[in-house]
Write a protein that binds this DNA or RNA. Structure first.
Length: 418
RNA sequence: CGGGGACUAGUUCAUCGGUAGAACGCCCGCUUUGGGAGCGGGAAGCACAGGGUUCAAUUCCCUGGUCCCCGACCA
């Protein structure tokens, strides 16, 4: 991608309303644009990051047997009335359709997937079944805030798992738990698993929390065995596992996993016939992961005073190619050549091809956008006198040092980076 | 949903009773190029909306809207 064509350009200052780090940096760098409180457009760079995160999640879900589907955003109000959540779900967006029909913008999808399963599941042979989707969810939060950390429209992965028994469900729960840990590790986030209060659905649920001062949740982390507990259920300041001292930390909840209560299966009549010919209720679990919130969390955790520092796995591009002195045709040709060679090797490159823009602006933009590898081509690097003419000047966003390596060496670095 | 703050150029802000100004960005010209360069010229505004006070309101008052922050809430 040539930067001269990229929409939109970076901003020197953050808009007045943006106070949280992730909001400021992502707006300034041109990843997102706020439309109203809690509602954002994902711009070219931002969408690429979301896509990277989605694909990492998708890959792990597929590995544990998940089948990807896409359920509707628009739900029949009727289903929500059946579960009682049409009136009890506080942040539900409700609207009217033709003939005054009650409709709901989906904040979660039990009301869709249970009827879907009830229609299609008959035998123990149909189970277990793991269905997931990556989709836009709607929740009318009383107070949207902190950029992508708490929005009214957000992207979420939700996996629903259906089993013959609670025992089988609990086994799969552990598998998903491991998959989640892998996902967050790949994303460059160290997420702690915290025991949370069960809420409406279950006696036990767990949350995946990323420790950062800007988080809105509070967790207690054991200084001895690294057990973490959500504030909601931490009664004393001692670890329930090892009796160590608990330290209070702020955190962002990026995932939540829990068994689903059987009342859903009862309401929507989700039963199956077991091997012995007996009718039994289906046992289920729900596994959520906030894709867009995770993007915000990455920025909160990984940035410096100059801008974002994207982990390689989720960066919108791998290489930021900065061309200086581009009015010099030989430098320009050299830079274009490097650009094409990188593209030919399948490397994702953002090429700053602007001619009448100073080096300082280009460097500042590169720092702000936060792509992992910066390659600079200029008169200085291009001139044979420097002794480095056959090498690329490479700087990692996360490091201070600049290195000179051959094109082949650079390719190897980039391709092995994640 | 309680409390606080803000709304003026594309953006960030100044003017704080006498119908608007800077910086950045943008356009043109010259100059310049390794960390947000310089000079000159230019375009750019129903001052959130409505009502009130006043000879006169962007400015003061009221109502509403929007956004941000703190809290409550967060299947």
């Amino acid at each position: 991608m040539k930067y001269s064509k990229l929409f939109p350009k970076t901003l020197r200052q953050a808009p007045a309303g943006a106070e949280s780090i992730n909001h400021q940096l992502m707006v300034r760098a041109g990843f997102i644009h706020q439309e109203m409180a809690g509602v954002y457009t994902y711009l070219s760079l931002g969408w690429r990051v979301l896509d990277k995160i989605s694909n990492i999640v998708r890959e792990e879900m597929d590995k544990i047997g998940g089948q990807e589907i896409l359920m509707p955003v628009l739900h029949p109000g009727e289903n929500w009335k059946k579960t009682g959540r049409f009136s009890s779900f506080d942040t539900l967006y409700k609207l009217k359709g033709a003939k005054d029909k009650d409709l709901v913008l989906g904040p979660t999808h039990e009301e869709i997937i249970y009827p879907l399963l009830a229609e299609n599941i008959n035998s123990y042979k149909d189970l277990p079944l793991y269905l997931y989707q990556i989709q836009t969810k709607f929740r009318d939060e009383p107070r949207a805030k902190a950029g992508l950390l708490r929005t009214r429209e957000f992207m979420m992965k939700d996996l629903y798992a259906f089993h013959e028994s609670d025992e089988e469900r609990n086994e799969y729960y552990k598998i998903v738990r491991e998959a989640y840990l892998k996902i967050f590790k790949k994303l460059g986030l160290s997420a702690l698993v915290t025991k949370a209060s069960g809420g409406t659905f279950s006696d036990l649920s767990e949350e995946f929390q990323v420790i950062t001062p800007s988080g809105e949740d509070t967790v207690f982390v054991c200084n001895r065995c690294s057990v973490a507990i959500n504030k909601e259920i931490a009664e004393d300041k001692k670890c329930p596992e090892c009796n160590g001292n608990l330290k209070e930390e702020k955190s962002i909840e990026v995932g939540n996993i829990f068994p689903l209560k059987r009342s859903y299966a009862e309401v929507f009549n989700l039963y199956f016939t077991d091997k012995g010919g007996e009718k039994k209720i289906v046992s289920a679990g729900c596994f959520g992961l906030g894709i867009s919130r995770t993007m915000g969390a990455v920025v909160e955790v990984s940035h410096d005073k100059s801008g974002i520092i994207w982990p390689e796995a989720v960066a919108p591009y791998q290489v930021h190619l900065v061309g200086l002195d581009l009015e010099d045709s030989s430098v320009k040709n050299k830079t274009e050549e490097i650009y094409k060679l990188l593209l030919a090797e399948g490397v994702e490159v953002l090429f700053d091809d602007r001619v009448e823009v100073s080096a300082g602006i280009k460097f500042a933009d590169a720092d702000l956008i936060g792509i992992p590898y910066r390659v600079v081509i200029s008169k200085k690097t291009h001139s044979t006198g420097s002794g480095q003419a056959d090498k690329l000047e490479v700087k990692k966003r996360s490091e201070k040092e600049t290195k000179f390596v051959t094109f082949e060496q650079f390719l190897e670095i980039v391709k092995n980076s994640h």
